[in-house]
């Protein structure tokens, strides 16, 4: 890990404009390379222009100078506000520019946007967190929240599916979750290596290892669309009420405020009606190709 030193870039926003398009200047305070293509950043404000506190599941638009903007979910809320943590996968021009940033570099942030995971409403219930690959990142604040208020929840299960042992995200979290007696943590990989002694297969196979009272269980699901679809099926098969299943969607976004039209999903805007949806609100759309 790196630490920020002497952060004092010259910054002046010419006008304290309320224009939603103008990003707030933040700087990289900390950078942690997770694996081949994922990097976690902690940003802190570079001016008095500070974003509102975020809730688990919400996202910001991240602007890299001269390259563009992308929507990224908050991946930890442990850093005290106004610090903001994002985990970025290097998959395109903007995400690459963001991943290449170093401590002290400036980024632009707009947000927070979107609907949160309803962690408060899940209190006094059993919880299933089902994550696929980088889908762990938007769910990480949920894990943090539950750990902080652990006594307020029933059984807590974390079912994590990932591509292969090398792609395991948040390695330190995984190690501590594995030794945490208060969480039933299960992990599986799609493809194993010879030294892997754990589960092999898709994440839905872990549902039978979860401990929960189906009638009093809330599930939070995030991962590739196909994984979320079958994840929801497997939870419903196990008796979980579909009204208690939440899913986080991803679409192209330019504005994040319902004005640009890019993130439309049926009659919904993923940016403002989501990204976290109640499963029944979108279950019919999940089956329609190229929606």
């Amino acid at each position: 890990m790196f630490t920020a030193q002497n952060i004092s870039p010259e910054l002046t926003v010419e006008e304290s404009s309320s224009d939603i398009w103008i990003p707030s200047p933040y700087v990289v305070a900390d950078k942690h390379v997770e694996n081949d293509d994922l990097v976690t950043f902690v940003y802190e404000p570079a001016s008095e222009d500070i974003l509102d506190p975020m809730q688990p599941g919400q996202f910001n638009m991240l602007y890299a100078f001269g390259i563009g903007e992308i929507p990224i979910s908050v991946s930890s809320l442990i850093s005290d506000h106004p610090r903001i943590t994002h985990t970025i996968q290097n998959v395109g021009a903007v995400s690459k520019a963001c991943c290449n940033m170093r401590v002290g570099d400036q980024i632009g942030l707009r947000g927070p946007f979107g609907t949160p995971w309803p962690v408060e409403d899940a209190k006094f219930k059993d919880v299933i967190i089902m994550a696929g690959g980088v889908g762990f990142a938007p769910l990480r604040p949920v894990v943090e929240f539950i750990e902080e208020y652990r006594d307020d929840y029933g059984e807590v299960n974390f079912l994590f599916g990932t591509r292969d042992p090398h792609s395991i995200l948040f390695h330190q979290d995984v190690i501590s979750l594995q030794s945490d007696p208060s969480v039933n943590f299960q992990i599986t990989v799609d493809h194993s290596f010879s030294n892997w002694r754990g589960n092999v297969g898709v994440v839905t196979t872990l549902v039978e290892k979860a401990e929960f009272d189906p009638e009093n269980t809330v599930a939070f699901v995030c991962g590739p669309e196909i994984m979320m679809r079958y994840g929801a099926y497997s939870l419903i098969d196990a008796g979980v009420d579909e009204e208690n299943i939440f899913i986080s969607m991803e679409r192209n976004m330019k504005c994040a405020i319902g004005h640009c039209g890019h993130c439309q999903y049926g009659p919904l805007f993923v940016c403002k009606d989501g990204p976290v949806f109640l499963y029944p609100a979108i279950k019919n759309y999940l089956n329609i190709r190229e929606l």
């Binding site: 010419e14 006008e15 200047p25 570099d105």
Partner: peptide, 10 residues
């Protein structure tokens, strides 16, 4: 651009 950062103009 200004060093590590940038100034935003209207």
């Amino acid at each position: 651009k200004t060093g590590n950062g940038f100034n935003v103009e209207e």
